[in-house]
Design a binder for these strands. Structure first.
Length: 270
DNA sequence: AGACGTACCTGACCGC
DNA sequence: TGCGGTCAGGTACGTC
């Protein structure tokens, strides 16, 4: 599921757990992308002090100087349940003092759960060397121009590089490039300042819109469903290669770039 | 250093 | 119905 808007939605949906104490946990024996650095036993009795997000990682700070890091990989989902019945691919479960359960389910197992000392969080293999958050002010035209100036790789792949900017995955870069009318095939260092400014603003706009829509599904969860829902995507180019451009009615295109599918309009995006 | 291919996994879907 | 091929929203690593 997850790109940045989905993780942000999950974070907002589980933030109410702050202040709860972990009563018990379960970790499946299946191997995830990385194994926890520390014994998870110290989770028991720990109180959640803060839940936040960095890039596509969920960070859960505990009152025992330790922090949980959760990553959802390609297929991971987090849900909150009022009672727990095991289903296939449940890999990590926490039971809290309010009797709710947080469940991490991930069929492809590209995600992970890790426990580290909070003072070493920034040095974690996954968190060190990350670029800026796309919605923060330090992700701007001047910064991006500098980053792209020596990159000959296509702009689409460059934008999916976590060292340049985090959390922009395949869906949202396709949508952002369409929104800014820039062809995904262009070499990154070929874009001028104006185009880079447009791209920065499109990335922020598209992500904010998706987060806003994702947030609305959380209220459904609170009222009825018992699970955190995801944004019902409304894409203009992603997965629409058999359809026509909503702007110019041209047939949309699909190509492969560095192993990933790219969708775009060859007329609108130059 | 940057570009690029590949590996990690399961499941869904499509054509034969 | 079953089988093989291909694809999927991410990330890390090896090689040139």
């Amino acid at each position: 599921m997850p790109e940045l808007p989905e993780i942000e939605t999950v974070k907002n949906g589980i933030k109410y757990l702050e202040g709860n104490v972990i009563k018990s946990y379960f970790k499946s024996s299946k191997k995830l992308r990385i194994s926890p650095n520390q014994d998870l036993k110290s989770l028991i009795g720990a109180k959640i002090t803060r839940i936040s997000r960095r890039a596509r990682y969920l960070i859960i700070n505990l009152d025992n100087s330790k922090s949980l890091i959760l990553h959802l990989g390609m297929s991971g989902k987090i849900s909150i349940r009022s009672n727990y019945k095991p289903i296939k691919h449940d890999h990590f479960i926490c039971n809290f003092t309010d009797e709710s359960y947080l469940v991490f389910n991930d069929p492809r197992r590209f995600g992970f759960v890790d426990l580290v000392n909070t003072d070493l969080l920034a040095q974690h293999q996954s968190l060190a060397n990350l670029g800026p958050e796309p919605l923060e002010d330090d992700f701007n035209q001047a910064y991006l121009s500098k980053q792209l100036s020596n990159k000959k790789i296509n702009i689409k792949t460059a934008m999916m590089n976590n060292k340049i900017v985090v959390g922009v995955g395949n869906i949202y870069i396709n949508e952002s490039l369409f929104d800014s009318k820039i062809s995904p095939l262009r070499p990154a260092n070929d874009l001028n300042k104006l185009e880079i400014a447009r791209l920065v603003s499109s990335v922020k706009k598209i992500l904010k819109k998706a987060i806003k829509a994702g947030g609305s599904s959380i209220s459904d969860y609170k009222n009825a469903k018992g699970e955190i829902g995801y944004f019902q995507h409304d894409f203009k180019v992603y997965d629409r290669d058999l359809e026509k451009c909503l702007i110019c009615k041209n047939q949309l295109s699909k190509v492969r770039q560095n192993g990933r599918s790219t969708f775009y309009c060859s007329k609108c995006q130059k």
